[in-house]
Design a binder for these strands. Structure first.
Lengths: 152, 152
DNA sequence: TTTAAAATAATAATGATTATCATTAATAAT
DNA sequence: ATTATTAATGATAATCATTATTATTTTAAA
């Protein structure tokens, strides 16, 4: 945890940004709640518990900054709110999501499933891929079982 | 064009919805401007040219309806606006996008690049895939050439 | 025709995000 | 150390996309 924060600090410094207390508090919340797909408001409320004087605008600014530096990924599940996930350390790319259309549950896939596809895009479309986002919509295991139960 | 509208009409009727003049005007705009990634506001202004009495809320409702029936795809490029694309007729899935981070251009890929990946998701994650969205962020051909010119 | 349901236009309300601005903290220059 | 400069912040107002409301109109059914 502390090491991770140190590295993020360096990452910020390299771009001549500082790791202010507010920013650090925000990063800590993201670290504690990894993969929780927190909205800016969620983050704000959690940071407020530790540092009550922080403002919502600062949280937005911090998330935007971290997003530009690719420390967090800004995701959109189409519910009108942006959500923020700490990017796995060393991960070159965004992780993928499985969104269940029945119960709304979101699963993560960190495996790189797109290596081959990316190659195709680079060669066939002359497009230099920097990042990608992949989301599957469908029915999760739990809801599939539910359906079976209901219909039997 | 007319045939397509007929089929959409039937599609609506099958779900006991009507193809009202407002809805038809909206569909026509989407047909004329296929692949243009229009926002609700864009669609509204274009429909207004043909049918000036239409209200913005109706456009939103229509787009939402068409989206539920999978006649249009609701996309989000992270710029705070939802965009609407007519789904290619017979296309079982969403088409993919290449978004250039330099110039903002959006290219379309209609090929199904994810057949193999979907199989993996279905078997390894027990997730019944219904749809997917895949977007690549990177640098398009044009901007790559630009960079070469600048650096030389 | 009468009645009920669906759809609409106009507009108010909402809610997420961004902009503004006065204040404070950090850093650099003297 | 003191001052000047810049960056960052908190509070809050403004913006803007979207949704809800409501009175009215259209459509379909009885």
């Amino acid at each position: 945890m502390e090491h991770r924060i140190d590295r993020i600090k360096k990452h910020l410094h390299a771009q001549s940004y500082k790791l202010t207390p507010q920013r650090e508090a925000t990063v800590r919340v993201l670290l504690e709640r990894e993969e929780d797909h927190l909205s800016a408001e969620d983050v704000y409320l959690l940071v407020k518990e530790k540092a009550p004087e922080i403002g919502l605008a600062t949280v937005y600014r911090t998330l935007e900054l971290l997003s530009e530096l690719k420390i967090v990924d800004k995701i959109n599940f189409g519910d009108g709110v942006s959500r923020y996930d700490l990017r796995k350390e060393g991960a070159a790319h965004f992780h993928h999501h499985l969104v269940c259309t029945e119960c709304g549950a979101v699963e993560e896939i960190t495996d790189d499933l797109l290596e081959d596809v990316e190659k195709i895009v680079e060669t066939d479309w002359n497009f230099k891929v920097k990042d990608h986002r992949l989301t599957f919509h469908g029915v999760c295991k739990k809801c599939q079982d539910q359906e079976l139960k209901v219909s039997s």
